[in-house]
Amino acid sequence: MRYCLALDLRSDPALIAEYEQWHRDVWPEIKASILDGGIVQMEIYRLEDRLFMIMETGEGFSFEKKAAMDAANPAVRRWEELMWKFQVAIPGGRPGEKWRLMDKIFSLNK
């Protein structure tokens, strides 16, 4: 299954550069948690201060299961706390919600 999500960054070139640097050298524990959670591929793109994530997941993946795994993983909790320095929640989300799931509105190959 493919999911697309969006998130904003603080509009500060130095913080954006630092955020990108963290993502060029993601902690091994974070990569492992992504794979262990059933995500088989993930890409993040940036346009100015807007991020766009594409996730490909395997069978059995659920956001609820992944959130529970992350909550129980100290490395993921540290990473997420660190990333809040750079991130801004998109208006309209639930309190504490970071990445917001996007609705698919078009597909060339239905």
Score class of each variant (00 low, 15 high):
A32F: 00
D25V: 11
E20I: 01
R10A: 09
R77T: 10
I16Q: 15
R50I: 03
K98L: 11
L82A: 14
M102G: 13
L82M: 10
Q21I: 01
E56Y: 07
R100L: 09
L101D: 02
G38K: 09
I16A: 12
M53R: 02
P13E: 01
I30T: 03
E97N: 08
P28M: 05
R78K: 11
P74F: 00
S62K: 06
N109I: 11
I39M: 13
Q87C: 08
E43F: 04
E18R: 15
Y3I: 09
M69L: 15
W79E: 05
I105C: 02
A75D: 12
L82P: 02
F63E: 14
W99P: 03
F63P: 01
G37D: 06
L15F: 00
D49T: 10
R94Y: 05
F106N: 01
P13T: 06
A6L: 07
A6R: 10
G60Y: 04
R100K: 15
E64N: 04
D25N: 13
Y45M: 01
L51Q: 05
V26S: 09
R24V: 07
A89R: 05
L108T: 08
W22Y: 12
G96S: 08
K98V: 07
K31S: 09
E29N: 08
F63M: 14
Q87K: 04
A71E: 09
E59L: 14
L47N: 09
R78W: 06
L82N: 08
M1G: 15
W99A: 05
K98Q: 10
K85H: 14
E29M: 07
N73Y: 01
E80T: 12
P74H: 00
R94L: 08
W84E: 13
A32K: 04
E29F: 06
L47V: 10
M42C: 10
D49H: 15
E43W: 05
W84K: 15
G60V: 05
K98W: 06
A68K: 11
V88Y: 08
P74V: 03
A89V: 05
S11M: 07
G38F: 08
E97M: 12
I90W: 02
K98F: 07
Y19N: 06
F63I: 12
